[in-house]
Computed example of a mutant assay.
Amino acid sequence: MRIHIVKIGGNLINKENLLHSSLKYFCKLRGYKILIHGGGRKADEISNKMGIQKNIVQGRRITDKETLDLVVMTYAGILNKNIVALLQYYKCNALGLCGADGNCVQSFIRKETNIDYGYVGDIDIKGENINAFLIKFLLRNHITPVFCSITHNGLGQLLNTNADTIASNIAISLANECKVELHFCFEKKGVLRDIKDNESYFHEINFHLFKKMKKNHIIKDGMIPKLENAFFALQNGVSKVSIGLPENLNNVNNKTILCL
Rank of each mutant, 00 (worst) to 15 (best):
Y25R: 08
E177F: 05
T67A: 12
I62P: 09
N229Y: 01
L29W: 14
K65W: 07
M50A: 08
I166H: 13
E45D: 09
T74R: 12
N169G: 04
I195M: 11
I36D: 09
R140M: 02
K91S: 08
F202A: 01
G102L: 04
G10D: 06
G39T: 01
T165L: 14
H20S: 11
K179R: 10
C259L: 14
K136E: 14
N236M: 03
I170P: 05
I5F: 05
N250K: 15
E204Q: 14
Q106K: 15
I62F: 13
A175I: 01
N93C: 06
Y117M: 03
K49C: 08
L209G: 04
I172A: 04
G237K: 04
N93F: 14
K188T: 11
F147C: 09
N93A: 04
N229K: 02
N236P: 07
L245D: 07
L35Y: 02
H4T: 02
N80D: 10
I115C: 02
E204F: 10
K111G: 10
A167T: 12
L29P: 02
S173W: 07
A85Q: 13
N236Q: 03
D124W: 12
A233T: 06
A175R: 10
T256I: 00
L12N: 01
I195K: 14
N80C: 06
I195C: 03
N253A: 06
I135T: 05
D197A: 00
H152I: 00
G99A: 06
L155R: 15
Y25Q: 13
S107V: 00
N162R: 10
Y117T: 02
I115L: 01
T256H: 00
L12A: 12
